[in-house]
């Protein structure tokens, strides 16, 4: 059903790819309601967040980067060469000074809570005062209020277009529009293919829940909200998210999850080890031993899908995640 629409979309993107022009500076563009001006192609780019870092690598911009930070998983294998040449300022949130010390012409981030009104690194104004242009990926500001809820609250469901916009804008800023268009086209084609594959499975009224982690093993878990990226993934593959909260990662009681009894349970795999439940093996042990969760259909019938946490961010890995989820569903339908 979505096939023809996507085909049309693809044709559109392909057309724009063909007509890609070199960027003309000074460049003016709108970023989350802020007007940014780039007098020339930026140098010494410092990226805050694995997503922006990997997009820049995918755009082949490693030689123009002075640093990266905020890592969740290991860098994608195909981007390792690029990563080797860029200094990792910090595994986590970098300090403001460590960023500005690089004299960056461009500081992109994947999260508004890194650079924003309550930015952990700094505010846009702090960067602007030093003549540094900060950029927040539209994926994290469009349709989202980052001042409500611990990971922000969605006002509107996540829209994949914001990811294409993010990649497209970063490509324009870096004067890499050809590579940007090709990257977007590739991802869109893979998205269309996986959606079609899932549609063909024809699983009726299937529901799902996505468990990221829990502060303590038995505490209410952090589940994917009803409008975030994981919810978009589920919806794209024809699965209904049993969690309806607008928050990005709300805590939802196991009572609510168990009674909703989703047909599929998605659990996140991550390198982070802050909470015991960060470990995917601990998650499985809990699900199978707890007197209530062990009675859930998805647990009893072993319909548990393990997905990388980074694939749940609006990143170039999103389609990888979509494919992994569809692969797992394929197993379920058999």
């Amino acid at each position: 059903m979505t096939g023809p629409i996507l085909a049309a979309l693809l044709a559109l993107t392909a057309a724009s790819a063909v007509g890609a022009q070199p960027t003309e500076y000074p460049l003016t563009l709108d970023n989350c309601g802020h007007q940014l001006i780039f007098p020339a192609r930026p140098d010494n780019v410092v990226s805050i967040g694995q997503t922006t870092t990997e997009i820049l690598y995918a755009l082949d911009q490693a030689d123009r980067m002075a640093g990266n930070s905020l890592w969740f998983n290991a860098v994608l294998p195909e981007l390792q060469d690029q990563d080797a040449g860029v200094e990792r300022i910090s595994d986590n949130t970098p300090s403001f000074e460590s960023v500005v010390n690089k004299r960056p012409g461009f500081v992109p981030t994947m999260f508004e809570w890194m650079i924003g009104a309550q930015g952990a690194v700094g505010t846009r104004e702090q960067f602007a005062d030093l003549g540094i242009t900060a950029y927040v990926m539209p994926t994290d500001c469009h349709g989202k209020d980052n001042l409500v809820g611990s990971d922000g609250t969605r006002i509107a469901p996540f829209d994949i277009q914001t990811l294409w916009d993010s990649i497209g804008q970063m490509a324009i800023i870096m004067d890499a529009q050809d590579r940007g268009s090709a990257l977007i086209a590739d991802l869109q084609a893979r998205e269309a293919a996986v959606v079609e594959r899932a549609g063909a499975m024809n699983i009726p009224d299937a529901s799902a829940a996505v468990w990221f982690s829990s502060a303590e093993m038995e505490l209410d878990p952090y589940m994917a909200g009803g409008m975030g990226v994981p919810a978009w993934m589920l919806e794209r593959l024809g699965l209904r998210n049993v969690v309806t909260s607008d928050e990005e990662w709300p805590t939802v009681g196991w009572e609510t999850v168990a009674r909703a009894d989703p047909s599929v349970l998605v659990i996140a795999r991550m390198d982070r080890r802050r909470f015991p439940a960060d470990d995917v093996d601990e998650k499985l042990r809990f699900l199978r031993s707890d007197p209530v969760t062990s009675q859930m259909t998805a647990v009893k019938k072993d319909r548990i899908v393990i997905l990388d946490a980074e694939a749940m961010h609006a990143s170039i890995r999103l389609i990888d995640g979509l494919e992994a989820l569809a692969d797992a569903m394929n197993g379920l339908s058999r």
């Binding site: 595994d91 611990s150 502060a215 209410d220």
Partner: peptide, 23 residues
């Protein structure tokens, strides 16, 4: 100090109280 690249939301539990993990 022991946190990773995420907001330290676990603090909320210790500062506000939570009964959901009780067994």
């Amino acid at each position: 100090r022991s946190a990773n690249a995420e907001q330290a939301r676990g603090i909320m539990f210790w500062l506000l109280g939570n009964l959901s993990g009780v067994r």
